[in-house]
Amino acid sequence: MIVFDLICRDGGHKFEGWFGSSGDYEDQQLAGLIDCPTCGSRSIEKAVMAPNVGMKANRRSVVSKPSVKEEDASGSAEDAQPVSKAVEIPTEYNELVGKLAEAQAKMLEESKWVGADFPEQARAIHYGEKDATPIHGTASTDDVVELEEEGVEIMPLPLPVKPPKSQN
């Protein structure tokens, strides 16, 4: 998972978005599936972020011995601790995202992946040309707008979905 800081261009609202990859963010952005949780605007862009690169698991944190200027008043540097600008994600948030992922997975168990054919398939179901069955796939921003204008009931998935053929 990758977390981006996002900003609403219309209201200036800042919020986080969790995505499977940078490509998933781009796909959802192009499909108009990202909206501001405060005002609902779909005019969203990535905010400027500082990189948060984790340390390799097989490496230990090393704190260099401070110079004389960095030592505390007692002259001891033994109490020095590693520091980071990384924000710790609350356990409750991780649990919430996990439950959301489980709910989405359960919902998609009965749904058929139709990929880029989603707009046509959704229309066919809406107009009774095909049996009503749950489907999921991808759609461009223009397709989403057209489907909504036609009254076709669709909804964005809360979390990114990998196409079945791209999964290991």
Rank of each mutant, 00 (worst) to 15 (best):
P156V: 03
S43A: 12
V63K: 02
P66V: 07
L30C: 09
Q167N: 06
P82Y: 00
E26R: 12
I154A: 00
R123C: 02
Q121N: 10
P158I: 03
V97Q: 10
A86S: 13
K99L: 13
R42Q: 09
I154S: 00
G98V: 07
S41G: 05
C39R: 03
Y127H: 08
D143H: 14
G151C: 08
P134K: 01
E102M: 11
S61I: 04
G23D: 14
D117C: 00
G128D: 03
G20C: 07
K65D: 15
Y25R: 02
R123F: 01
P66E: 03
V68Y: 04
E45I: 01
D27M: 13
G12K: 02
A57P: 07
Q121K: 09
C36L: 00
A124D: 05
S76Y: 00
L33F: 05
L159T: 02
E45Q: 11
P90L: 09
G17N: 03
E70K: 14
Q81I: 13
L33H: 02
S111R: 03
S140V: 05
E78F: 13
S41F: 12
L30W: 04
Q121Y: 00
E149I: 13
A47N: 12
I2V: 11
A86F: 12
R59M: 09
P163D: 15
G151H: 06
K46H: 06
A116P: 01
K99M: 10
S76F: 01
A139P: 02
G12P: 06
T38K: 01
R123Q: 08
E78Y: 13
G20K: 01
I7M: 08
E129I: 03
E45L: 03
K130H: 07
I44N: 01
M107T: 12
V114D: 03
M55E: 06
A139T: 04
K46L: 07
D142Y: 09
I2Y: 02
L30I: 00
I7C: 07
E71R: 15
M55N: 10
P160A: 13
F19Q: 02
E45S: 08
S67E: 08
H136G: 06
G115P: 09
N52V: 12
E45A: 10
K165I: 11
S43Q: 14
V48W: 14
P163K: 15
G11T: 05
C8T: 05
T138H: 14
V144P: 03
A103S: 15
M55R: 15
D24T: 10
S84Y: 02
L30F: 10
A122C: 07
D142I: 08
H126T: 09
F19P: 02
S111P: 06
Q28A: 12
I44K: 00
D5L: 07
S67L: 05
G137T: 04
D143C: 07
A50P: 01
S21M: 01
R60Q: 13
P119E: 01
E88L: 13
I135C: 08
E26G: 03
S67Q: 05
